[in-house]
Design a protein around this nucleic acid. Structure first.
Lengths: 226, 226
DNA sequence: CGGCGTTTGTCATCCGCGTGTCATCTGGCT
DNA sequence: AGCCAGATGACACGCGGATGACAAACGCCG
């Protein structure tokens, strides 16, 4: 198993590398973003451990570039802080997992194993609903062959809907799944996002997929065709 | 129903397991985070009951890893404290619900049921009456293959009738069941709604299913066919 | 660090449909 | 014919949802 370690803190890098080698892995080390990116593109690794704060090019940017360059190697991001924000950004930019400093070495190893474990099923097929296609892996969305740009939230909403086709989802379910905060207060975020989603995936087309079930919730209706 | 119970306190774990088994569930127990995570990834459970404070890897981390690994099993988190902070963190990491120790066993069971209701809207089979079909899960109604749109009230009324086929239901029963208010004043809501229901499920067809029993109430007659 | 475009969530307003009531009609029974 | 239970059509109100605009937060760039 070849691992690329991109970490600018020399002492941490050395320690991690030693431990990983100890655990039986072959480890290359890079000390800034640009260097890491070049190595990652030119060499086939089994995993990349990537710090977020890096000289020359930060981890998130490296991550994004690699994904754009179709480098699908599993990436484990290392970060100092842990806020929802951070996690979302990390995962959004294409990382597969996220580890917050300080961490136990055992956890790093476990997560690496976890990454590989899930390597196989990561070839998750694109979700389809009529002429609407959503690819969880590449984050591509298209309807009738037409590419559609979606923001992170909208993508998550659509993905959730498409994972539960023809099923009525209540606002509570949706809110709980996408926003995950204590919603005591009545908010109409879900309504607003449904609207925004409709503007992009329904309004330009004649066949509507998003359906409002008055008094209950929303549903993505998959046309019973062919 | 298979449940994974991740709880390091052996006595509590044993007690919970016994109760859950008692309640008819198949229960696997894990005693630390890593063990729990691996089991959760390798085995398809219907729910995971996850303590927050765990050796080797805490519940929040386990939860996060599972979600990243696309394990969508409903997770019920157990915690000792209860601050908004805690709850937010729990839900943020991907848990579906949250239960504060100490809790009543009945509440645990109730919440598990709630989780399933939410996640897999009851695989309850569709109700049938002749060529009329009503699916409580998807709220789809159809007669002779023809989809029929119903408002919330009408749907509830039809569902009630279909759950008591061939049985005479008085106005009082129906009103008590659907409107649940103490009607002193004589109202003809039920009549009106029966009319509206007929317009949609009987009028367009030759065989009538809704029957008026003069002086008593209404009944849904199921044709004794094939 | 500071400015700028984008994303996000809230709010106020608007609109249409679902709902319940009422007045009137119908048809069967005595 | 008269009565009564139920059928029917019409109507007004209010709720649930749609919509557009706004303000704060964030991400990106220099």
């Amino acid at each position: 198993m070849r691992i690329l370690l991109v970490e600018d803190n020399r002492r941490l890098s050395a320690a991690l590398k030693a431990s990983l080698v100890d655990a039986g892995y072959a480890v290359d080390a890079a000390y800034d973003g640009m260097e890491g990116e070049e190595l990652a593109i030119s060499t086939p690794y089994d995993a990349i451990v990537l710090d977020v704060l890096l000289p020359r090019k930060d981890g998130l940017a490296v991550c994004r570039s690699l994904r754009v360059a179709r480098v699908n190697t599993p990436i484990l991001m290392l970060t100092a802080r842990d806020t929802v924000q951070d996690r979302v950004r990390g995962l959004d930019s294409g990382a597969d997992d996220y580890l917050v400093k300080p961490f136990a070495l055992s956890e790093l190893l476990a997560r690496l194993r976890a990454l590989w474990r899930r390597e196989a099923p990561s070839k998750e097929p694109a979700l389809m609903a009529g002429d609407l296609r959503l690819d969880p892996a590449t984050r591509d969305v298209a309807r009738a062959g037409q590419r559609i740009e979606l923001t992170a939230r909208l993508f998550a909403l659509l993905e959730y809907l498409m994972r539960h086709p023809n099923q009525i989802l209540t606002r509570e379910q949706i809110e709980g799944h996408l926003w995950s905060y204590d919603f005591e207060a009545t908010s109409n975020v879900v309504d607003v996002y449904m609207r925004r989603l409709r503007l992009r995936i329904d309004d330009p087309f004649s066949v509507k997929l998003l359906e409002t079930v008055r008094g209950v919730g929303y549903r993505l209706r998959v046309p019973a065709d062919s």
